[in-house]
Design a binder for these strands. Sequence first.
DNA 1: ACTATATTTGTAAGCGCTTTCAGTGCCGGT
DNA 2: ACCGGCACTGAAAGCGCTTACAAATATAGT
Lengths: 347, 347
Amino acid sequence: MNIYDIAQQAGVSIATVSRVLNGSEKVSPRTRAKVLEVIESSGYTPNIFAQGLGVGTIHAVGILVPDISDLFMADSVAFLEQALKENGYSSLLATSGFDRESKERHVQMLLSKKVDALILVGSTYAGAGLDPEETEYIRRAAEQVPVFLVNGHVQGGNIFSCVCDDFGAMYNVTSRLLQQGRRRILFMTDSGSYSALQKTEGYRQALRDAGLPVDPSLMLRVRNRIHLVRDLLLEKTANADPGDSAGAVGAPLTFDAVIATDDGMAVGAVKYAAARGLRVPEDLEIVGYNNSSLSVACEPELTSIDNLLSEMCETTVHRLHQYLSGDHDQPQEVRLGWRLVERGTTR
Amino acid sequence: MNIYDIAQQAGVSIATVSRVLNGSEKVSPRTRAKVLEVIESSGYTPNIFAQGLGVGTIHAVGILVPDISDLFMADSVAFLEQALKENGYSSLLATSGFDRESKERHVQMLLSKKVDALILVGSTYAGAGLDPEETEYIRRAAEQVPVFLVNGHVQGGNIFSCVCDDFGAMYNVTSRLLQQGRRRILFMTDSGSYSALQKTEGYRQALRDAGLPVDPSLMLRVRNRIHLVRDLLLEKTANADPGDSAGAVGAPLTFDAVIATDDGMAVGAVKYAAARGLRVPEDLEIVGYNNSSLSVACEPELTSIDNLLSEMCETTVHRLHQYLSGDHDQPQEVRLGWRLVERGTTR
DNA sequence: ACTATATTTGTAAGCGCTTTCAGTGCCGGT
DNA sequence: ACCGGCACTGAAAGCGCTTACAAATATAGT
């Protein structure tokens, strides 16, 4: 079933069918109606390859995300697809894994599918001079199609990013906790991404502005798994008892508040508190990030920073659409706000 | 940069380049090496449209999932993509939303992209005579490419499904709770899918086999949102007090155990228990389904049925691969096992 | 050395669509 | 009646690739 069949059945030429398909003006209403009828009744769909070969594009954008089973990224994808659909784009999604080579391969893959633009999700796309290697392939991709980063930042032509004011959010939350009288605030993060860097800086700056020293032992790099975080904290705070083989080296860690860069880690801290018999928030205040469904699952429910993901995604798609519509001069970076959702783990 | 450029630079014909690209045997090592070198140095990638036009397929399979932000489905997609990648397929993912028309449109969309097969994820693809309308479009799709259902079932040619023994899981869990002396077991589900039906039947059968009546008021249809479930349960169990406008009609609901068809709902039940001051599991035992990250986030941690999702996904991809390799006679349905993960919400 | 056969390479015909360019038929203006 | 112009339609040339088939070259057998 191809365009020739339709043309024949409708008694017109393939050019006319093609024009009807593409909504061209130059078709008389009668002819159009007839063609549409035949198309309708035969259930014909144009072959995307032929279509793409003809014009070189299929109005599709590629979305690349390191790990779709991550709550944050799954939500991003959902929002992005929704927004893209509303703007008439179809989307190709690929999950890349975390290593650079794999990411690069997937970018290539999407590009070879001739997408009109690329959206790279996830803060693991570093930048800001963090890892020059890491950003290089993004620049290369940007030579072929515009690249839009959600929650990440890379300097370069044809690269646009939309981020949350992570610095501000962390600065604010840290300051709040300090005002509450907390003095040893544990900071947990799981990646060296741009977003993680911003958050870290916010934390440090707040301490500095309060005239407090930044204690490196209070800054933990962890994997974002509830039980792993719980166990790590238990271990770090353990008194060096003889039965503990992997035991805490040196003095046990102490802290009276926890800020995590993801809800999963924060829940880990909640679990730690429960295991230690600490009262939350009295003995330990805990703040998460992303305001995901985990934050309402745990007990007490998690105070969490909402980074307005849906807005970030909508903004990204909006800009993408503007760009593809010809408006090429846009700010390289758009920085959006955030919202602190207070629940049971803070006062 | 196209195949002609490469051919010219390598001093061969485009046919030879194409053969190298496709790993055909009929190329001498010397020629192959030369062509590969030119390809390498020029960074050439074949145009996917032309490629697809030529052979009519691109070794890709379409994955359709109602909602990627759902934990269960996000995990499915992650597993599926992983398995597909390992088998040399690329994947096109689309999220369809829940209404049939939208799903159908997306199936069409994927088909028009000429995928080699379709994987439909999520129990919301009903079947088994439940909603004949709903299944019709799956059958139509199956006329064009083989269709593989993960955790769903539709009777029909060219349609293959892989499901969990939901019936058995529910039968078993219900029986266990009965043995513990529980007599009023609340059953919660959120869809009329094939999988939900199986679960429901398991629950009923266990009651029947124990010689107990099936009380319809104990079977709740809910939306899978923690707070909605909590509030619904609070409302249903409320004594009809005058201040309660939407108040409970008739006698308040009573139950001493809860089985949910998803962890989200089960966490809702945990929240309900906390709000009512009920002890879990002493006063109320709760069992969830899917063994998702939510199950370890709440307090006490959730006993949950693990439906071996990763196995389901791997099996599906394995069968898909078999099928596309020519082995067309396979069982229509494969039913896998399950595992009860006992945590704090049961004894 | 000289076929017969195997191996490698090239030629050319599509794949199904878009789009340019050249009609074809019809209108009003003169 | 005639012509320029307009609205519509059709013929045909690609788009970049795959692959059947033909041609050319290499290998083996005698």
